[in-house]
Amino acid sequence: MKIGYRTIKTAIGTSLSIFLAQWLGLQFAASAGILTILSVQVTKKRSIKNAFARFFSCVLGLLLGLVLFSFLGYHPVTIFILLLCLVPLLVRLRIQEGFVTSCVILFHLYTTQKVSVAFFTNELAIMSIGLGIGLLMNIYMPSMEIELKKYQQKVEANFRVIMKELVVYLRNHESSWDGHELLETPELINAAKSLAIQNVENHLFRKQDHYYHYFHMREQQFHLLERMVPLISTLLYSVSQGEKIADFLDDLSDHIHSGNTAYVFLDQIWQLKRDFEQTELPKSREEFEIRANLFYFLQEMERYLLIKDEYIVSDSKTQGKSIP
């Protein structure tokens, strides 16, 4: 059985909230623990946003309850009317996250059936302790850098395998590859992008994330690789250009990483395209089709490298670094 850090924080925060509320002699002390449970979120930004939403929704619910209970009395029907009015109001103000917490405070009012300064002081103290401890627990968030780097390494490893298999197709026109990397890679990229978004929300003053842009770049490149596999697998025999492209692709597969190497391989692509233009015309239809497919493949590889080059430029500007 595995206990996550969020479970531990929730347990510590809840018990601490109830302890403080009881130590201060507050009524409904256990409710402070409930508010803390609701306040412990996955990220820091979400925690702060929800804490403010819950606090204002509690105050709004308390004031609305005070008005309706005063005029209609403390009856279940009043609760019905109160909720019908409260929910649309919270949604309109975009603080609907605080609906449950506001209900907790409202039920305190319904239970006591008495409005006084002491009651308001008690409820404000309960809200402050419950929400405050929840925010305190969310100060610590474990670093996701290690996990994101693991995703990066796995995606790059899959890219290498796919390219190596393309090299095998180009040289041998057959392969025993099962292609599972083509199915696994988009799942890895989607999971990594979600984690990268969560990483941004754990930094209060960060609006962009290097890893998110990196995996978005790899996602665009992967779509091109998906199209290249069936294209290369249809080539039936070798031509001289195919051997050169295989050597190029073999070299490229050994240099798949986050560094700036795209410009080097773009030069090689352009040289290969010039070689195509200077080669004698094909002597058969089969050779023409193969060379046409290979030229199209080079164009796709050029797009593949340009995506990386654009990412390097954009990331360098974001990080405030010069391109090596």
Rank of each mutant, 00 (worst) to 15 (best):
R206W: 04
S316G: 11
S128Q: 01
P142N: 05
C58P: 03
K45E: 06
A191P: 06
L225D: 00
S322R: 13
K49E: 12
F297P: 01
Y296E: 09
I81F: 14
H255A: 15
T185M: 00
K114F: 14
Q198L: 12
Y263G: 10
F71S: 14
S176M: 09
F99H: 05
R274M: 13
A32R: 04
L16Q: 06
Q220M: 14
G73I: 11
H173F: 06
L224N: 10
D178N: 12
R54V: 03
F71N: 11
I126Q: 02
V167I: 08
L16N: 05
S102T: 13
Y5Q: 09
R54S: 05
M301D: 01
L182Y: 00
H173W: 03
L166W: 02
L305H: 01
L89G: 10
E123V: 14
K154Y: 08
T101G: 01
T111I: 13
K244N: 07
G13F: 04
F120V: 13
N199R: 03
A29L: 03
V168Q: 10
D275P: 04
S258Q: 11
S240A: 15
R206P: 03
M127F: 05
L195R: 00
D309W: 05
L109D: 02
L89H: 06
S15K: 06
K283Y: 02
P282V: 06
F55S: 03
C58V: 09
L63W: 06
S39W: 00
Q208L: 11
T36G: 06
E243N: 11
Q153H: 14
E286Y: 09
N260H: 15
E280A: 14
K207M: 11
V229L: 04
I34V: 15
H180N: 10
D275M: 06
V200T: 15
F205Y: 07
L124Q: 03
L109E: 00
L252D: 03
H210L: 09
H216G: 13
E147Y: 05
V313G: 09
K154W: 02
V100R: 04
G4W: 02
V167H: 00
F69I: 12
Q27R: 13
C85D: 04
L236G: 13
S128R: 07
V117Q: 09
I197M: 09
